[in-house]
Simulated scan of single mutants.
Amino acid sequence: MKQAIMLEPGRIEYRDVPVPEVGPGQIEVKIRKIGVCGSDIHVWHGKHPYTSYPVVQGHEVSAVVTKLGEGVTEFKVGDLVTIQPQVVCGKCYPCTHGLYNDCEELKVMGFQTTGMASEYFVVDAVKAIKLPDGMSDEHGAMIEPLAVACHAVRRFGDIAGKNVVVIGGGPIGNLVAQTAKAKGAAKVIITEISDYRLKVAEKCGLITVNPTQTTLRDAIRSAFGSDGADVIFECIGSPKTLEEAVEVARKGSDIIVVGVVPDLCPINMGFVQDHELRLIGSAMYRVEDYREAIELVGKGLIEFDALITHRVPFSDYAGAYRLIEEQKDKAMKVMIDMEK
């Protein structure tokens, strides 16, 4: 089978490799679609702190089951699935307490272990999640980033009736905002400096704010009055926007850190203490987040198509990264089409 291997930053080659044998409790799948995310781009540029080379990428996928290993009864050949890309130890405190996304020895397919950028992939059946009949391949590959959003909103708790701010209108920020709205938030505003991404957010039914035209503090006051925001989701990973989130937070409110912050961030902890703010990290997802993501899509509460802006054939995998560099904010979600 063909496999795309990133030998070093900015260099991908194709190799013919054998399809792994299917062991007990495993399934073989034929990959259909792969979404490219921001973390993949960090690897392309050699700036991901926890990835070494060579590496096979691909962790946002849809796939069709082609073979069943001994003892696998929950799937049948032909099922459309997505794959949880976490590889965990199963022994540490988080793993033994249902928090395997925080595994002390966590590896992620496409970063610290082999990803799914190949025609076929063999995986433990427990990592596969069946997708509903009729779901498209592209929407199936979008369940993973939506699970990130579901987990982030779950970290806050019951968001129904709450005032929500989402900083960042990229795919994850957009999906966090859509998820909060779908789960009954009173009002959701999303901030973004890209006019293109603001238009995409509007297509998704979201209230938008451009912080170059009004301050975040003024936007919150205009949207929520003196009540302010109950929760702010930081979905960029910028020390500047994280600092700003702390500065504008209402006393007794929450800030959920969803974006990956690559640098040390100076936070006014005296302000955090005095205002009784809660700074809460959100890392990846668990199976319940995938289930919720599928449920929200099934109810028609999530808009995916406006986010899928480009499609690239598997034969030009590197072209997906170059396209994102060239298009910048206009490349929201780029899909790798494994059939081409």
Rank of each mutant, 00 (worst) to 15 (best):
Q327P: 10
I308F: 05
V164L: 01
V56Y: 03
V87F: 03
S315I: 07
V260H: 10
I167A: 07
K2S: 15
E70D: 14
F75S: 06
V153L: 01
C37V: 10
I236A: 09
L175F: 09
L106R: 01
Y120P: 08
I232F: 00
S52T: 13
V87D: 06
G169P: 11
L206A: 10
G23I: 07
P262Y: 13
I336Q: 03
G252H: 07
I159Q: 03
M109D: 09
E276F: 07
G184V: 13
G23D: 11
T214A: 11
A128M: 06
A185L: 04
Q26I: 02
K183H: 08
V122S: 00
G184W: 08
T208D: 08
G169N: 09
T214F: 03
H310C: 05
V257D: 06
T51D: 03
R311T: 09
A245E: 01
A177I: 13
R154K: 14
T212E: 14
V64F: 00
V297G: 11
T309H: 09
R250S: 14
G115C: 04
G205I: 14
L146E: 00
T215A: 08
K130D: 04
V19W: 05
A185W: 00
N174E: 15
A331G: 08
H139P: 06
W44F: 12
T113Y: 00
V287P: 11
R278E: 04
Y53K: 01
Y285E: 04
I12C: 03
A320I: 05
I189H: 06
P145C: 10
P9H: 07
L277N: 08
V22E: 01
R155F: 05
D289P: 04
C95L: 02
V334L: 02
Y196F: 15
Q3G: 14
G25E: 03
Y50Q: 09
P49C: 10
T114L: 06
A117F: 04
I12Q: 04
E13A: 14
R32H: 12
V55A: 02
G168R: 02
S39C: 05
A219G: 08
N101A: 11
I267V: 11
E21A: 14
T82W: 00
A180K: 02
E105L: 08
M269Q: 03
H151L: 01
A249T: 11
F224N: 06
A229Q: 10
Y196L: 08
V209R: 02
E138R: 00
R286H: 10
A125Y: 02
I308D: 09
E326R: 14
R221I: 12
M332L: 14
A306I: 09
D102T: 12
D227H: 12
K199D: 13
I256F: 04
S118C: 13
A141V: 09
M335W: 02
G58I: 03
G38Y: 02
P239A: 08
A201Q: 05
Q84E: 13
L277G: 09
R11W: 08
S118T: 13
E105D: 11
T208H: 04
A185Y: 01
Y14M: 05
M284Y: 15
D263A: 15
A152N: 11
F224D: 03
E105Q: 12
T73M: 10
N268I: 00
I308S: 07
L216K: 12
I267M: 05
T212M: 14
